[in-house]
C-alpha cells in the first residue's frame, strides 16, 4: 500500500514562506519597539535632568555673590595680608633681643662705647678699667657661642690700653647665627 500526498508540493513552500514573513515582521517590530522605547526613556531622562535648575541656581547664587563683592574683596584681602604678615613676622630678625642679650652679659665695670648690629654680624666696642671684667664679658660671650645662643663666632679684633685714661679698650666682632 502506498501513501498518497494530498497537499501539492507548492503548498509546503507557501507554509514555510509565511513563517519566514512572520519572523521577519516580528524582528522588524521588535527593532522598532526597541528604538521607540529607548527614545522615550532618553526623552524622559532629558526632561528630568536637573541641569536647567542647577544653572538657574548657579545664576542666582552668582548674582547674590556679586552683590557681596565688597565683602568678599575685604575678606580675601584680610586673609592674604594675614598670610603675608605671618611670613614677615616669622622671618623678621629680632635685633632688639640681640641688643638686650648683649647688654645682659655686660659686667658692671665694662662700658659699651658702640654696638653695631647688621643682619649678619655684631661689632662691639667697649672700655673698662679692669682686664678682669673684660675677661668676664668675653667668657660670657664665649658661653653664648658654645650654647649657640644668637652668635656663632666671636673674634677679638683689638685690645688696647689708654695710658692717659688708664682704661682698656676692646673691639669684638661676632657673627650672628
Amino acid at each position: 500500500m502506498s501513501d498518497i500526498n494530498l497537499l501539492p508540493k507548492n503548498q509546503g513552500i507557501l507554509v514555510s514562506k509565511e513563517h519566514g514573513i512572520r519572523v521577519v515582521r516580528f524582528i522588524a517590530f521588535g527593532i522598532l519597539s526597541f528604538v521607540v522605547f529607548f527614545s522615550l526613556i532618553l526623552f524622559i531622562i532629558r526632561i528630568q535632568s536637573p541641569l536647567t535648575s542647577l544653572k538657574k541656581q548657579e545664576a542666582s547664587l552668582l548674582s547674590t555673590l556679586t552683590l557681596s563683592n565688597t565683602k568678599m574683596a575685604k575678606h580675601l584681602i584680610i586673609v592674604d595680608r594675614l598670610t603675608t604678615i605671618s611670613t614677615v613676622l616669622g622671618k623678621r630678625p629680632q635685633l632688639d633681643t640681640i641688643v638686650s642679650a648683649f647688654l645682659s652679659k655686660l659686667p658692671p665695670n665694662v662700658t659699651l662705647i658702640s654696638l653695631q648690629i647688621t643682619l649678619t654680624k655684631v661689632q662691639i666696642t667697649g672700655t673698662s678699667d679692669s682686664l678682669l671684667d673684660i675677661n668676664t664679658f668675653l667668657n660670657n660671650l664665649v658661653l653664648m657661642v658654645t650654647k649657640k645662643e644668637i652668635i656663632g663666632r666671636l673674634v677679638l679684633q683689638g685690645l688696647s690700653f689708654d695710658a692717659k685714661k688708664g682704661t682698656y679698650n676692646f673691639i669684638l666682632e661676632a657673627t650672628l647665627l
Binding site: R92, P93, L95, Q116, I117, T118, L119
Partner: peptide
C-alpha cells in the same frame, strides 16, 4: 624690620 643698628653712648 630693623636692618641695621649702630648704638652709641
Amino acid at each position: 624690620e630693623v636692618q641695621e643698628i649702630s648704638l652709641g653712648d
